[in-house]
Amino acid sequence: MIAAVIPVALAMMSLALLLNLFRLLRGPEITDRILALDTMYINSIALIVLYGIQQGSDLIFEAAMLIAVMGFLGTVAVAKYLLRGDIIE
């Protein structure tokens, strides 16, 4: 049953990533692009974990953990940069 479900889940995740890519390219605001990148890294964690289940390998966990940490820091850093660059009133 799991073997049948994984390709379906992988396809759905890939579609989700394509939709994120659409938003990343489309914008229109820079914050939309940041949000799209943020969603992409979260979805890619799911994709990696799915791949790990399919391969039956637990080793991939470290990669997922690293992406989670680095992605969060990246998003916050870019958002903070925008906040400092343009302060209203």
Binding site: M13, L15, A16, L19, T39, A46
Partner: peptide, 12 residues
């Protein structure tokens, strides 16, 4: 997968 897809549809 369904939740992640719906979240991304919302984003798009």
């Amino acid at each position: 997968a369904a939740f992640a897809l719906v979240g991304s549809i919302g984003l798009a």
